[in-house]
C-alpha cells in the first residue's frame, strides 16, 4: 500500500510539471490554432538562465531563497522576451499563411534554440544548485520532500491564477474574444496583436517557472531537456483537450499518474514481458487511444469553429 501511495505521489509531482508546461501549449493553440513546438525549448532556456543567475548570485553569499526568487524573476523576464520574440519573428509574419508554414517555423525555432543553448551553455549536464530546503516527510509510508511539495503548491497557484486571469479580467476577456473570432474581436476594438503577444509572454513565464521546478527536482540542467518534456506536455495538452485550460491541467496530472503507475506496475502485471522501459510508450499509447475515441480530448475543445 505504501508503495502504491508513493507511486501516486510520484505521478502527482510529475503531472504538476507537465500541466504547467501544457498550459503554454494550450493557451497558444486556443488563440492562434497553432502548436508552438518551440515551447519546450523555452522551458529549457528558463532553467538555463536560472542556473546562470543563481550560480552568479550564490558566489556573492546571498541566502538561497532570495537567490531563487531573483533567478525566478530574471528567468521569467528572459523567457517573456524570448516568447515575444518568437511570436514576432517566426509566427506573426505567417499569421495568414497556410497552416503548415508556422508549424514548420515552430520546429525551426526549436532546433535553433536548442543549438544556441548548446553553444552558449555547453553540451554537458549541469548540476542545478540546491536552493530549496530538501527535508523528507513521511506520509503513510510514502516519502515526499520539500521540493516536491513546493512544486505541487506552485503549480496549483499558477493554474488558479491563470484561470482567474482568463475568466475574471479584461485582458482575459480579450483573449477569449480573440480565440473565438479574431476578426470580430478586432472590429470590436480588441488589439489582437497585443493580446497574442501577451499570451505568448504569459505562457513563456509559466514555462520558466516549470523549467526551474524541474531543475530543482532533478538537480540537473541540460540543453536537451526541453524536447522530451515539451513532447510530454504537448501530449498532456492533447489528452485533456487542446485549447482548453482545464483540460491541460487534467491532462498533465493524468499523464503523470499514468506514467508513474504504468512504469511501476507493468512489469508485475505482464509477468515481466513488458518492462519499465516502456514508461514513455505508455504515455503515447494512451494518447493514441484517447484520440481514437475522443478526437477532441477528454474535456473537448471549447473554442467555437472558425469559418
Amino acid at each position: 500500500m505504501d508503495i502504491f501511495l508513493q507511486q501516486i505521489l510520484n505521478g502527482l509531482v510529475q503531472g504538476s510539471v507537465y500541466a504547467l508546461v501544457a498550459l503554454g501549449y494550450t493557451m497558444v493553440y486556443g488563440i492562434l490554432g497553432l502548436i508552438n513546438f518551440a515551447h519546450g525549448e523555452v522551458v529549457m532556456v528558463g532553467a538555463m538562465v536560472a542556473l546562470t543567475v543563481s550560480q552568479l548570485l550564490l558566489a556573492t553569499g546571498l541566502p538561497p531563497l532570495l537567490v531563487l526568487l531573483i533567478a525566478l524573476m530574471v528567468a521569467a523576464a528572459a523567457c517573456m522576451v524570448l516568447g515575444y520574440g518568437i511570436e514576432r519573428i517566426a509566427y506573426r509574419p505567417l499569421r495568414n499563411a497556410p497552416r503548415l508554414a508556422p508549424l514548420i517555423t515552430a520546429i525551426g525555432v526549436s532546433i535553433v534554440l536548442q543549438n544556441l543553448a548548446m553553444i552558449f551553455w555547453g553540451r554537458e549536464y549541469h548540476a542545478f544548485p540546491q536552493l530549496l530546503p530538501n527535508g523528507l516527510h513521511t506520509l503513510g509510508g510514502a516519502v515526499i520532500n520539500d521540493v516536491q511539495l513546493i512544486i505541487m503548491l506552485v503549480a496549483l497557484l499558477m493554474m488558479t491564477g491563470l484561470m482567474l486571469l482568463v475568466h475574471r479580467t479584461r485582458l482575459g476577456r480579450a483573449m477569449r474574444a480573440v480565440a473565438e473570432n479574431p476578426s470580430a474581436a478586432m472590429l470590436m476594438g480588441v488589439d489582437i496583436n497585443r493580446v497574442i503577444s501577451v499570451t505568448f509572454m504569459l505562457g513563456s513565464a509559466l514555462a520558466a517557472v516549470a523549467g526551474i521546478m524541474v531543475s530543482a527536482n532533478y538537480g540537473i540542467v541540460h540543453y536537451y531537456m526541453g524536447s522530451i518534456l515539451g513532447l510530454k506536455a504537448f501530449t498532456a495538452a492533447v489528452l485533456g483537450g487542446i485549447g482548453n485550460l482545464r483540460g491541460a491541467m487534467l491532462g498533465g496530472v493524468l499523464l503523470g499518474l499514468i506514467e508513474s503507475l504504468g512504469a511501476g506496475y507493468i512489469g508485475d502485471l505482464s509477468g515481466g514481458f513488458f518492462g519499465s522501459n516502456y514508461q514513455d510508450v505508455f504515455a503515447f499509447f494512451v494518447l493514441i487511444a484517447v484520440l481514437i475515441f475522443r478526437p477532441s480530448g477528454l474535456l473537448g475543445e471549447r473554442v467555437a469553429e472558425r469559418a
Binding site: 505521478g11 532533478y218 512504469a263 511501476g264 512489469g267 519499465s276
Partner: peptide, 17 residues
C-alpha cells in the same frame, strides 16, 4: 530486473517499485 532508457531523467516510478 528493471529497465530505463539512455535518455530518461525520471526514475522515481521504477525506483519506487
Amino acid at each position: 530486473h528493471e529497465y530505463t532508457t539512455d535518455k530518461a531523467v525520471d526514475f522515481t516510478a521504477v525506483l519506487t517499485s
